[in-house]
Design a protein around this nucleic acid. Sequence first.
RNA 1: UGGGGCGUCGUCUAAUGGUAGGACACCUGGUUUUGGUCCAGGCAGUUGGGGUUCGAGUCCCUACGCCCCAGCCA
Length: 550
Amino acid sequence: MNDINKNFIQRIIDDDNDSGKFNNKVHTRFPPEPNGYLHIGHAKAIYLNYNIAEEYNGKCNLRFDDTNPIAEEDEYVRSIQEDVKWLGFDSEKRVYFASDYFQQMYEYALQLIKNNNAYVCELSPQEIKNTRGTLQKPGTQSPYRDRARDENLDLFNRMKSGEFENGSKTLRGKIDMSHPNMNMRDPVIYRILHANHHRTGDKWCIYPMYDWAHGLEDSIEGITHSLCSLEFEDHRPLYDWYLDKLDVYHPQQIEFARLNLSYTVMSKRKLKLLVENNHVTGWDDPRMPTISGFKRRGYTPKSIRNFMEDVGVAKRDNIMDIAKLESSLRTDLNKRSQRRMAVLNPLKVVITNYPDEKEEFVIAKNNPEDESAGTRKLPFSKVLYIEKDDFMEDPPKKFFRLSPGAEVRFKFAYYITCTDVIKDSKGKIVELHCTYDKDTLGGRSEDKRKVKGTLHWVSANHSVLADIRLYDRLFTALNPDAESNFIDTINTNSLKIVKNCRLEPELKTFESKIPVQFERLGYFFKDADSTAESLVYNRTVALRDTWAKK
RNA sequence: UGGGGCGUCGUCUAAUGGUAGGACACCUGGUUUUGGUCCAGGCAGUUGGGGUUCGAGUCCCUACGCCCCAGCCA
């Protein structure tokens, strides 16, 4: 690793290592709250934390920050672990829960009270709000602020034993009600919550607030560099205050800019709304920026990791162009995907000079980027389907697909010339009559005559049917968060289902785990909705198309 | 009128007082049995104004702009 081109976090760690601050140790953590599914913004945090640890020969913990029983569920801890693993990060059994430290946190709170740094406050939530002051004006002190030490201890213990109603009392830090940083105006440390916790059940009825819990979790686990997003910058003084007052091991919090993607929303609240109001089919809807959504859509873990490497890390607010994600995706898929033939919008083609009952098999390359992927046999016969878009009766200049009198290559098969256009009574094209040149088997000719267009095709009788789901961005606004109501900018055409697509027969039994490219169309991934009788494919991403742009 | 951050091509991100570079996007051209890939090239940036310096994206002053903070959420 050279000194140049490091990001600001690596430089901080280098400085710490130079000064011996953490004895050259690096230990990070990824601390999700199990209250929703992971999205690609989390993937940045995961990537960062695991990679920093690996780079410096350290470790990274996966820690569930489950301090609020109201919002958290087991379903989410399961999905989060699954997603982290799918992304390619091994937590090596380093899986922890904030709730495992509840007893220890409680004892630390006792210590804080004993040192006269915390007190039990009986102000209601509304009263606390009213006395906090504003951004410009200082707050006023709670009447309970100067309670005797023993009374605080007694009251706090009774809070713990369940004697009081939700919201009736809190434990608060005794800091400074006129502090310019609102977080330092006697912050709540514990609140009373008679609620069932997904792991500790009914054992506790007081739960620690984030600021109290997070620093202690980091401290207990021996974290060195505690990476979090920018909005916690204002919380760092409090993180430091607690640890200093307790005089315990003190990790360094470092803030970085979270990832934003163009044409998408990233907040859990908004994603949840999309799910609950059925704007999408679920957390794993292929249009969602969730890890499970990308997975179902056909994204690869490697493409997401490469994207994160590309994105980098800094403290500027940013909106990454989603085209960059798609570029990482195509780079990976291009090298690895198996090519297959599929016709989305079939147009019947009859090869008039081809024997009626004949069928033959042409040799098709599975992946031109990788010879080891081998070849397969593709059935060819008299009646075929091609893409409707690949024929124009009256083509513009530079249209080098099929048109009356034009000769094109049917990939891996023959040169084909269109002789007749068959229409129905309304003038709609229903069928094409063509001839083939029998001396061009494999798609090449002895005379080296040049054929500009190469089309994909399937044999009608051999083909299998499928529904194909075409996805577009979920929002029409580049930054939906900036709109007064992001729901209003939902793209009503984000999903288009194309029925009765024709696939080459091998796709009937194709393994769903392998990424596949439908020649000339894009990358597709077999959806979980597929059954033995009916195939469903998701378009992961289209191929770059410089023709369509014009 | 409080506090904390941040301003570099269209979008991300480097350059740590010494030639403003890379990626994506976009535009040319070449190769190609995918209008894909690949290859070659091009376009495009330091928020403004002062100052220090032989030399400033970088240091200082100042102005401006953007983001975050008033949950018993994280």
